[in-house]
Every structure is written in structure tokens, then in C-alpha cells.
Design a protein around this nucleic acid. Sequence first.
DNA 1: TTTTGTGAAGCGCTTCACAGCT
DNA 2: AGCTGTGAAGCGCTTCACAAAA
Lengths: 219, 219
Amino acid sequence: MDRGKDSILEQIPAVTRERLLQLMRILEGAGSEHLSSARIEELTGWSSNTVRRDISYLESFAGGPPDERRLGSVNGYAPACLVPLIRRALSLDKRRRYCVVGLGRLGSAYLNSGGPAGSSPEFELTAGFDISVNRVEILKSPAPLYPAYKLGEVIARFGIEIALLCVPAEAAQAAAEKLAAAGIRGILNFAPVALMLPPQVAVRNVYLEEELRALAIRM
Amino acid sequence: MDRGKDSILEQIPAVTRERLLQLMRILEGAGSEHLSSARIEELTGWSSNTVRRDISYLESFAGGPPDERRLGSVNGYAPACLVPLIRRALSLDKRRRYCVVGLGRLGSAYLNSGGPAGSSPEFELTAGFDISVNRVEILKSPAPLYPAYKLGEVIARFGIEIALLCVPAEAAQAAAEKLAAAGIRGILNFAPVALMLPPQVAVRNVYLEEELRALAIRM
DNA sequence: TTTTGTGAAGCGCTTCACAGCT
DNA sequence: AGCTGTGAAGCGCTTCACAAAA
């Protein structure tokens, strides 16, 4: 295989990382049932070759002597074996805090979906922000809400790393810059604009119209 | 270049299609200002080489004699020239209808963002569905709402092609199957499950936790 | 006998580098 | 002089095909 000739940290291709991410959810939902690469092909559409190759990247994250690192058996792969490896390979072990910026319809929807019974313990909804002091006082929320001007202070205080940007398009760039200045590491952007930010901030866009178009070009 | 040796329809790589989609939005926001490939590199992070290559795929969609098809000038590319070509290349000309299935917090947020002043005229919010008759009667909406059992009938009647699936995770697979049976062509799935559907239905997942993880692995 | 793990081949996107156009 | 358009080279992901393991 001979990866890692460049550095100590093995490099996993970006496409593989994305697939491992999805694979992890499938494995988590499979209980103790073993999954073969052929079965995963049925579930995902990825060729079984690709599946095996992807999983083989996890080899170096398995403990034990270099010989005892076989990941699958003749029954297929065991979820309980792979999931921890994927978490380690993708550095998903760390608990991360996130906030919601902009508490309109979409923002408050995500505010409430991220509550106690919300997503995994992996991500923790820590704060919500809105420009309207009134809205901040009235809205019910599982996490504390703050007026926008406290954004920098609160993000620093709690070590919030990720922001869901749900403000109107006109306000998005300015808000994103504030977030970047406050030290946020990643932004999930729901506003229909291309944000321009320094490269140390990761941005992922989730814009309805673009998603619809992406669907349309596949139909 | 020699594309199109396989069929009459030129094949544009999937990654290029995705970039052209984003590029279109940037161009639409640029007004009449010409954009050079170097400028687009600044805006997007894609290398100017890649930008020029991507745009070169549009050549065959330009009209006029085979010689007169130069897309850019010494000033760069003119948005007004490229945007129609991209629309044609990605088959985004057709007006498509979509619906929202599941009118919880998220569903009703999208219901109201897709209203008259909502997204482009390219996609038309045509209906909303929910299992709760009560909710269907009470909610305010820019599009007519129907109880879930009318799903098949309404989709067929209006020729709805796309669905935003906003139901709880437990109900997602069943709802998706109903949609597929009703002839829907694409599903934007917001429920945290991997849908299993016949291949003629395009699925795109937008799941908060996965988006957060995708961000996290880039941080 | 089924399924994994993996060199090696294949293939497609990206980058290079420069001719051509304005 | 500057920018596009594009053969050709480079490179990385995918697929093939088969040895090894259980």
C-alpha cells in the first residue's frame, strides 16, 4: 500500500473521507449485523471495490501488531469494529460546540432540532444569536440566546467552533466576517451568497436553490 | 478536445457541473462586470486553469458558426454571455415544481422561504403535505396544503417533480417510497437516514449532523 | 467457497505551458 | 501586454483481478 511516505499522518483522499462519513451512519444503524462490501454496494451504489479500498485506509488506525490488523472477516465487516476507527481517522472524537446565528424561521428550526434530544452528543448547541434583542428575549430555546453584539465575546468564552449561518442574504457576508474574527473554525452557510473568508475558516454551503439545481441536473 | 465521440450529447464531468452551478450564481451577482479566470480563482479557490477548462465545455452549447464561438474576451468573461450557456448545458431551462413533505419546524420554514418572494422562478413551490390534517388546516402557506393521503394524487395532477422531505427519521423511508411511487424524480432529504429507492429517483441528503461532521473533518 | 485485501492497470480530472487572439 | 483556449503531461481515484484467509 505504501501510504504515508510523505508524512507521519496518513492521507485519506477527500472523496473517501466523505464516503466513510456516510458509511459510519449506515454502520451505526446496522447494529451487530455484519456487512459485506457487496451488501454496502447495494445500500450505497458505491462499487464493492471502492468500499474495500476505502475501508483499507483505516488499517493504519487499528491498534495491535501490524499483522493482526485484519478489519473484515469472511462474514463481512463488523460495525462495532469499524465505527471507532472511522471516528479516529476523521478526527470526530472531539466534542465540538456550535451556535446558530440568525433566528428567523430556519434558524429557530435548527435551534430546536439541536436541543437535548437533538443530534448526537458529538456536537453541542451552545448559543443562539440574533440582531433583534426582542426576538432573543421572546424565543424559547434549549440553549441561551444573545443579541448579536455579544457574538465575539460569547464565542470566545465558550470556545464555540462552528456556526450555522441563517441570516438573510444581505447580512451574511458581514456576519461571517464577524464570526471569522471571533475565531470560528467552520461555517455552515444557509444564505444564498458565496462567502469570502480567510482560508482558515471552512465553509459549507447549504442553499436550497442550489440543492434543487443539483438535483435537477441529475434528473 | 474531441468530446462527443460517444454520443451526440456532450458529456460534462460531474465535478465541472457542480462548479458551473456555483459559477452561475457568482456570474448572476456580477452584473455586467467582466470576470477573468484569475478573478474567479480569487472568488472561489478553483485554479484559473480549472475555471477556463470548465468554461470551455460550454463551447458546444454556443450558437453561431463553429469559428465564432469564442466565449471570453481579453477582459475576461461576460456574465450575460455565459449564464444562458450554463443554463442550457445543465438543462436548467425547464421550470420545475416542488413540494414540501412534513410540515414541522423545518418543513414550514422551507414552505415560507419558497413563497412568492422566495427563490428564483426556476423552481415553483406547488404543494405542502403533512400527516396531520389539523396542521394542514391551520398553517399559513404560500402554496396549498394537503393531508398526506392525497400525496400521490396531487403530485400526479400538478406534475410535481421534486420533494423536500422534512418528516421525522422514522417516517422518512415510508414517505420516500410513496413519493417514488407517485412518480417524483428527485428528493432533497432532510431526515437523518439513508433512503433506499429505485435508481430513477435522485436523492440528495442535507442532514445537519453530517454537514457538521463534514465541516469538522476539514477543520 | 465466500469475502477480504491489494498490486497493477485504467481512466478521468487537473495542471502545465504556450500558441493565438485582441 | 494580457487573457483565453487547449494539446499534452501529470496525478489521483477507481476498477480489475487474484492471492490469501477463514
